[in-house]
Amino acid sequence: MTEHLDKFKGVFPAFYACYDDNQKISQERNGQLVQFLTQKNVDGLYVGGSSGECIYQSLEERKLTLKYVKEFAKDNLTLIAHVGAPSTKDSVELAQYASNLGYDALSSIPPIYYGLPESSIYKYWMSIIKSTNLPFIIYNIPQTTGYSLSMELFSELVINRQVIGIKNSSLPSIDIERFKAAGGSDFIVFNGPDEQYISGRLMGADSGIGGTYGVMPELYVKAEQYISEENMEKAKKIQTDINDIIINLNSLSGNMYAIIKEVLRRRGVNIGGVREPLENISDSDVESTQEIKNQIDRTIKKYK
């Protein structure tokens, strides 16, 4: 599994849910977002995760998204399918579907809602892993799942050669360093918290997967360039500018992804709203998204 890991390095936007005006999964709008991100020179896509509103979609809707993204991305991008679902059965079904479509890897959060022992979490992830021959990327995001991956379970999982990496979204950057040290040089660590892309990379992350990458992909691609060039002064500056934008994305009413989608619409990519119970942006805040769009434009121009 280690010979082709370079394709999992770089900038991977967490792909957004793309709906038509009736809240149905839109083939056309999935295609528009894939095309937009491809043109911005991202390295791959993380499809069907939190940014994709997976918890609020049916199994068939999630399959449609996986299908449409692959249809438009073809082999131009590395595609990681997030297949975490409330039941092991549904997760395995999604995993096998993604494998048949030709995805490059699978990923999954731990099982949600019930406070399960680590033996159950281990069996859940291993059921997904064993269901296909694809590489697997652990997804650790304790702030939403309520479970923080222990080093004991991590060590059990990485014995399996299909487990090639982890998307780590826990906030302490030491976690990135610990997982990288325990996983080894051939193990891929994805930085999760967008606000610490640069610090995550410096602490050992090989790549990044993030929910705000898709609305300003140019800035993360440029940040990765500065890291690769070891230009730490510019890397720190662009992270500060990215964080200013992230703060503004969280400053308006409604869910952050609703705000992102409105900013994207103003950037020429209409992918609809968000699915309830996520809240769409209020009418009074819609015009404020133009200021955020302008801020992104100015920042992109600044680093050209």
Rank of each mutant, 00 (worst) to 15 (best):
S207Y: 07
N231H: 08
I246V: 11
M232K: 10
P217T: 05
E230A: 15
I242S: 01
A223S: 15
N231I: 07
G214T: 02
G200T: 12
S207A: 13
Y257L: 13
D244F: 14
I259G: 00
A223P: 10
K236I: 13
S253W: 05
Y213D: 03
N243C: 01
V221M: 05
D244E: 15
S253H: 14
V263F: 08
V215R: 02
Y213H: 13
R265P: 07
P217E: 02
I238P: 00
G211D: 02
D244Q: 14
K222F: 09
A258Q: 06
D241Y: 04
M203R: 12
D244S: 14
I259C: 00
I242K: 00
A258R: 03
N255W: 11
A235K: 03
V263M: 12
D206N: 14
P217L: 02
D244N: 13
R201Y: 15
L219W: 08
E262S: 03
K236Q: 13
G208M: 10
D241P: 01
L252F: 04
E230N: 11
E262Q: 08
R266I: 14
G214F: 01
I259P: 00
R266P: 07
Q239I: 04
N231E: 06
N255H: 13
K234F: 01
I247R: 10
L249V: 01
N243Q: 00
I260M: 14
G210Y: 05
I246E: 03
R265F: 13
G211T: 06
T212W: 01
Q225N: 11
D206L: 09
T212K: 03
A223H: 05
Y257K: 09
S251L: 08
D241R: 02
Q239Y: 04
I227S: 14
S207H: 10
P217H: 05
R201F: 14
N255C: 14
Y220E: 06
A205R: 10
L264W: 04
P217D: 01
S253V: 08
L202Y: 13
N250Y: 12
M216I: 00
I260H: 06
M232Y: 13
G214H: 03
Y257W: 15
M203Y: 11
M203C: 10
E218P: 05
